[in-house]
Design a protein around this nucleic acid. Sequence first.
DNA 1: CTGAAAGCGCTTACAG
DNA 2: CTGAAAGCGCTTACAG
Lengths: 337, 337
Amino acid sequence: MADEKKEKLNIYNIASEAGVSIATVSRVLNNSPSVSEKTKQKVLSVIGTHNYVPSSIAQNLSNRTTGNLIGIVCYNLKDIYYANAVSMLESALRRRGHHIILSCTGEDFLQKQKSIEMLITKQVDAVILIGSVFLDEYGNNAYLLNAAKHCPLLIINGNVRSDNIYSFYCDDFSAVKNCVAIMREKHENFLFLYDADTYSGNLKLNGFYAGMQECGLDPAGRAVRCDSDAASAGSCFNKLLDGGEKIDAVITANDVLAAGVLNAALRRGMRVPEDLSIVGYNNSIITQCTTPQLSSIDNGLEKLCELAVDGLSKLLRGEKIEGSTMIPPRLIARETM
Amino acid sequence: MADEKKEKLNIYNIASEAGVSIATVSRVLNNSPSVSEKTKQKVLSVIGTHNYVPSSIAQNLSNRTTGNLIGIVCYNLKDIYYANAVSMLESALRRRGHHIILSCTGEDFLQKQKSIEMLITKQVDAVILIGSVFLDEYGNNAYLLNAAKHCPLLIINGNVRSDNIYSFYCDDFSAVKNCVAIMREKHENFLFLYDADTYSGNLKLNGFYAGMQECGLDPAGRAVRCDSDAASAGSCFNKLLDGGEKIDAVITANDVLAAGVLNAALRRGMRVPEDLSIVGYNNSIITQCTTPQLSSIDNGLEKLCELAVDGLSKLLRGEKIEGSTMIPPRLIARETM
DNA sequence: CTGAAAGCGCTTACAG
DNA sequence: CTGAAAGCGCTTACAG
C-alpha cells in the first residue's frame, strides 16, 4: 500500500504477504518441485504484483557460489584497439554465463592497483588485463603477484610469468623487426612513431631498434614519441622533414598515427607509396578509412581474446593451462607499401 | 600450512589464527579506534601473511549498503562512438566511487532484456543504456518500465518518458534536417546512408526526409541502408552512381560510412568537395584520419555523458531531475563540404 | 578493550 | 507439501 519510501522488497515481505514461510518463497523462486501448485501460484502472484526480484548477491552468499563476475582492466577504451578487445571478451564471456566488471585505468599506476584491489574485493572469479601491465616506481609488479593469490590473472598483450598468471601476447618485437627488414628492400630512411610505454609498446620499439641494427642502419633519432592522435603524428613527421631529415619509410605503433602521417604526406604532395611507405599497427578499422588504404601489422587481437577466454574456462573448471601463449603477427600489405 | 585446496579465507580463519573473535578482526578491518594497538598488530600481521581481503559483498549485505555498482548496457563496443561513451561514463563514474558492470547487446532484443534483468539481480544502483533502446516484437518497451521500478534508468541517445527513466539525447532530427538545408545551397542530389535502426538512427533518417521535403526534393530512394563498414558504404555509393543516379551530396549516419563514401569517390576520380560534399556523423577520430578531413555532425556525446552522470549523482542523493534533456547538435565543417 | 549475539537476504537439510 | 533453524561472510549495538 503505502510504498512511499519504496524500500527494496525482500523475501520476508513476499512470504508474509503470501502467508507462507520464506522457505516456501525460496522454493518457488528456485522451481523446487515440492511446492503445491496452489501455494506456488499464490506466491508467484504476489511476486508478480510487486515485481520482486531476489538478490543474486544474497543467493550467491548462501549458495557458496560466486557471482560469475570477471574483472576487466583496460588501458584506454577510447583507443579502438582496446575497445575491440573489451567487446570481444565481453561477448565471449557473456556467452559462457559470466558478467563483466570493467575498469579503465590509463597510465596511472595507482589507479591500476586500486582497480585490481577493488575487483578482488568484489570477489571476481578472475581478472583480465588488457595492455595494462605497468610497473610501479621501483619497477616491480608485486601488485600483480599479490592479486594472483586471489584469482587467476589473464594478461592480454603483456607477459608476466608467475604463479596463477597467464599471458597472451603477440610477438610484436619480431613483427616490427621483420617489417623493417622487408621495407629495407626498397627503403633506407626509417621513422618509427609511437605513443605509449605499454608492454607491447616497448616490444615494438625494441623490435624497431633490432631491425635497424640488423639492417646496418643507425636507429639514433629514428624512433620518435608523439601524442596519441593523428595530428600529433602528422606534425612530428612534418617537423622532421622540415628539419632536413630524409624519410621514406614509416612504421607506427598504431593505425591512427599512421593515418596522421599519411595525411601529412599527402598534403606535402608526397606520393604514397612511391615516395613514402607507411605501415600502421593493429589492422583496425582505420585502415579501411583512408585512401590509399593503410598497410598494417595485425597482432591477432581477436585470436588473443579467444585464447584467453578459452584458457579461463579451463582454469575455472580446474584444468591447467600454459603460463604464456604467443601468437605470430601478420603484416597486411595494402596500398601504402 | 596445508593450503592444498586454497579455500578462500574468511574472517573466522583470521580470527582463530590471531586468537581473537571475529568482532575484533572486523574492527581492525574497519579501523575502529577501540582496539588495543597490540591486538591490532597481531591481527594485521596474520591478515598480511595470508593476504586476506574481506568480501565486500558480505560487507555490503551486513551494512545494508549497495555495492556502488552501475550497470551499463551498450549497443556495440566495436563502434567507436559507443566505446567513447562507455569510456567517458566509466571514468566519470569511477571518480565518484562507482563501479561498472558492462553488457553489450547488439540488436538482439532478448539479450537486451536479459542483460537488464541480470543487472537488477546484481543490485545495481542504476542502469545506463547507451543507444540501446529497442522495442520488442509488439513495439513496446515494457521491459524498460519494469526495470525502472527497481532503480533509475538513464538513457543516452534515446528517449523514453516514464517514471524513473531519464533520457539524454541530441536533436538528431534537426541536425540532419538542417544539414540538408545548408547543403541545399550548393547541391540537389542527396544521398543519406545509414546502418542501424536505433532510436537516434531513426531520428536522423526522419530528419533527412523532413529536410528533403522542406527543400522541395523527393526523398524516394535517396535514403539507403548499408552494412556497418566503410566498404559497404563505398559499394552502395558506387552502385547508385553506376546505376545512373546523380549524387553530389552525401550525409551518413556515422563517420565510418562517410569515410567509405569518400574513398569510393576519390577512387572514381571525383573531387571532394568540388564534385561531391560529404558529411559524416559523430565527429569521431575518423574525421582526423582522412584526406580531405571529414566534415561531421557532432552530437555532443561527451556532454550527454556528463549530464547523465551528473543527473545520476543527484538521483542517488535523492534529488529530482528532469525526465528528459536534449542538447543541440553542431555541424563541424571541415574539408569535405 | 573485547566477545557473544543478532541481523543483512537468501538456501537447504531436517523434521513433521 | 511446509516451516524452523542453521549457515554464507560480514558488522555493530550491547554487555562486560
